[in-house]
Amino acid sequence: MEAKGRRPENPCKRYVKVRADFELDGSIRPLLFREEDGPAFRIDRVLDVRQAASLKAGGQGIRYVCEVEGGIAVLFHDEPYWFIEREESVSKA
């Protein structure tokens, strides 16, 4: 059993902080994300939302395929954590 407040260790997952809108229907729309001490990346557009497993990093949750600064980022909400997969490099400029 995990200690409360500690996320599971997984070197394949890049845990991120997320700012999101919570809609009246219960859905969540992420607006931006950032690693703990990194720059924030604004999500330009959410292209797809569905329940899915992360084949690259393991885990399962709601998968958000997002357009971010000209690239594609795959963001997972695996209660209570958020983590990122990247299909294309997202610049940190």
Rank of each mutant, 00 (worst) to 15 (best):
R7Y: 15
K4P: 09
F22S: 07
V68I: 01
L55M: 13
V49I: 14
S54T: 01
G58R: 11
A52Q: 09
P30E: 08
P39G: 08
D21G: 04
R29T: 15
S91Y: 10
G71S: 15
V74E: 10
D48C: 02
H77F: 09
G71A: 13
R86I: 03
A20Y: 13
R14K: 10
V46K: 02
A93K: 13
S27C: 04
D44P: 02
K92D: 11
R14D: 10
P39N: 13
C66F: 06
G38Q: 02
F76Q: 05
Y81M: 06
L24F: 13
R14M: 08
R7I: 13
E79F: 11
D37H: 14
V68P: 01
W82V: 00
A93S: 14
I28M: 12
G71H: 13
E9A: 13
V74S: 03
M1D: 13
R45H: 09
E85F: 05
G26L: 07
E36R: 06
C12V: 07
V18K: 02
N10H: 06
A53E: 15
K56I: 09
K92I: 08
G61V: 00
E36I: 00
G71L: 05
N10A: 01
E36M: 05
A73C: 08
R34S: 09
R6D: 15
N10E: 05
G58Q: 09
E69W: 15
E36F: 08
L32A: 11
W82M: 00
P39H: 13
F83G: 04
G5A: 06
I62R: 04
K17A: 11
E79R: 09
D48G: 06
E79T: 07
I84V: 05
D25A: 06
D48R: 13
E9C: 10
K92Q: 11
E9K: 10
D25P: 06
P8Y: 03
R7G: 05
A73V: 06
A57C: 04
I84L: 14
P8R: 00
I28Y: 06
G71N: 09
P80A: 02
E36V: 00
S54H: 00
D44S: 04
R7W: 15
V65E: 15
V68W: 03
F76T: 05
V16E: 02
V68C: 04
S27K: 05
R86M: 09
R45E: 12
L75K: 00
H77V: 00
G70P: 01
C12I: 07
R50I: 03
V16W: 00
L47T: 00
D78H: 10
A52D: 15
C66Y: 04
F22M: 08
K13P: 06
I72S: 02
I72H: 02
V68Q: 03
R7E: 15
